[in-house]
Amino acid sequence: MGMQGDFFQLLKAQGYHFGASGGESHDQQFTTATTILAFKYRDGVLVAGDRRATAGNMVMYDRTDKVLEIDRHSVMAIAGVPATAYEMVRILEHSFKYYRRTQLQELSFEGKLRAVSKLLKDNVAAALAGTGAVAPIFAGYDFEQETAKIYFYDILGAEFEGVEYAVSGSGSPTIRGILHYVNTWGDQLLSAMTEEQSTVQALRLLTSAAEFDSATGGVNREANLYPVIKLITAQGIRTMPEPDLKRHFEASVARSV
């Protein structure tokens, strides 16, 4: 009864079809124009993303939210085709709630990860056709192991645990190197950083990504435009408020060049 609490099965049974196959590949390059990142810090996991949405050379929108809360303890940061990514987030959001409400218990963290993989797997045809590729980062608090965790995925649904940090999107090669450097030879491991230090770090990383990747939006102080930064701890998810981002940016990120 109740499809064992599986909302995705229920949707399918009602005729819903996710990941419409894209048909022929058009050899078009749909880049994952974005930078998203997540790393472990002292109290949990920090997830951050820039806010630019592009189509080819065009900047479509500069206030996109790519770090999306799925429930009180998990977040998905999205890189790739936004239409598919947002649909995935909506399905996941309803799936986790549906599971909790039908089964009268939370879906385990592993169960949540499986749900993400399953959606990506169903989306393979569209991903390969180039019309629906999504490479997300999933982060959340695992109550069984009492720790916050980070996972990242390729567009085919392979799941990797990003032990200390994970990055995705077109700006990610730039900051991947930086993260490796900081975490290996820096004064302090990422996982030892305080909330404030890690926020500064995330702002610096996204600013660097924007420096070398035109599809990543940086900080625009005149427009009061800052990246989205969310912090996941056992208490839940907290979005870093804009005034705090502004304060950190001005104190520790901006330079007069």
């Binding site: 009864m1 109740g2 229920l10 949707l11 399905i91 309803h94 709630k97 549906y98 039908t102």
Partner: peptide, 18 residues
């Protein structure tokens, strides 16, 4: 009660999603 609870849950979630 379970049977009706499940139909309510299904209806609500499918509607909320669609």
């Amino acid at each position: 009660l379970e049977k009706l609870r499940f139909s309510l849950l299904e209806m609500a979630h499918v509607e909320g999603f669609n």
